[in-house]
């Protein structure tokens, strides 16, 4: 399609290096100001080396479609914590501080606690996965995420037999996330998966895109990617992962239960009450590009359709 050049963009060409270092400088300054009074450290506490994000592609679980450009992926998305317009996240997340970062793991599991992100990442091999992303608003992209299977992290925390669901929570910090000053949604943002969905090999915890750390507006430093579900299931800037027995009260299904379900599987046969889900507009196409057909489970039916055997997907939308 339109992104002939995207496949030959080197990861190093994508984010300007200045922007990347600027982020570090902010971190370093914060530390230098601390009681330590030491020389500015080269690698700040909680920082993750840039090389970690240069992960090898998992070709088996990647689509072959040409990915969207970094500018599209980082310039057009929904992240209501930074505003409701699709250009707001990029515009309003510049002062967000993704590192150092801690994630609380709790609920129905044996290994609970608050963990530094770098410790959670230490045992993981990061991989690149090129996934389709279908927004519930009927537009779509193809994104080269960098991350690791959620299942690997979950297993390390030894969920008990009572862990039927996994609930995720986004950071709640209106000072850093100006969108949270308006009660557009019931903050903090909460999402959830059934445990078998969470354990599916496709379910990814992403920390990067295009071989670099996630930009703030894309959910830095840690976000969920569930490629067969609508984009809003992919909760961003995760601070808490809880194993729970009951289906969690997720943000969009709570805000508008008739429009957004808990499952939110991409399904061309089940329309949103106000618009069709049969087709989608791939971002980056020309003005005259035709909409393309939306695929059941966003094209991942072979890997995930079995999870929903015997379920009425019209009712469990």
């Amino acid at each position: 399609m339109a992104h002939k050049s995207a496949s030959i963009i080197l990861p190093s060409e994508i984010t300007s290096e200045a922007l990347f270092h600027d982020r570090r400088a902010v971190l370093a300054m914060g530390l230098a100001g601390a009681a330590l009074g030491a020389a500015t450290p080269l690698t700040a506490l909680g920082d993750i080396p840039a090389e970690r994000y240069k992960a090898a592609r998992n070709a088996r679980l990647s689509v072959t479609e040409t990915p969207n450009s970094f500018e599209e992926i980082s310039g057009y998305n929904n992240f209501y914590e930074f505003g409701t317009d699709k250009s707001d996240p990029a515009a309003n997340s510049r002062n967000f501080k993704p590192l150092p970062w801690n994630v609380t793991v709790d609920g129905e599991c044996e290994v609970k606690g608050s963990f530094a992100l770098e410790d959670l990442l230490a045992p993981q091999t990061l991989e690149e996965r090129v996934y389709r992303m279908r927004c519930v608003e009927a537009w779509s992209m193809v994104i080269p995420w960098v991350g690791f299977p959620l299942a690997e992290l979950l297993k390390r925390h030894k969920p008990t037999s009572k862990a039927k669901y996994v609930a995720f929570t986004t950071l709640n910090d209106p000072k850093q996330m100006p969108g949270q000053r308006e009660r557009v949604l019931d903050w903090p943002y909460v999402e959830g998966l059934r445990i078998d969905e969470a354990m599916n090999p496709l379910t990814l915890l992403a920390v990067g895109v295009y071989g670099k750390a996630l930009p703030n507006q894309c959910g830095a430093p840690l976000r969920l990617v569930v490629p067969w579900k609508y984009g809003f299931k992919g909760i961003k800037s995760i601070v808490r992962i809880s194993f729970v027995e009951q289906q969690p009260r997720t943000s969009w299904s709570h805000a508008a239960p008739n429009e957004y379900g808990f499952y939110a599987n991409v399904n061309p046969a089940v329309d949103h009450p106000r618009w069709s889900q049969a087709t989608e507009r791939r971002i980056g196409g020309s003005l005259l590009a035709r909409r393309q057909a939306t695929l059941p489970f966003n094209g991942y039916a072979d890997q995930v359709a079995d999870l929903y055997k015997g379920m009425d997907l019209r009712r469990n939308f």
Partner: peptide, 18 residues
């Protein structure tokens, strides 16, 4: 923006912008 002249861009989703 639609014709891509005069350096005007309609953003990432020009159809939606229009």
């Amino acid at each position: 923006g639609a014709l891509g002249v005069a350096g005007v861009s309609l953003g990432m989703d020009p159809v939606r912008s229009l």
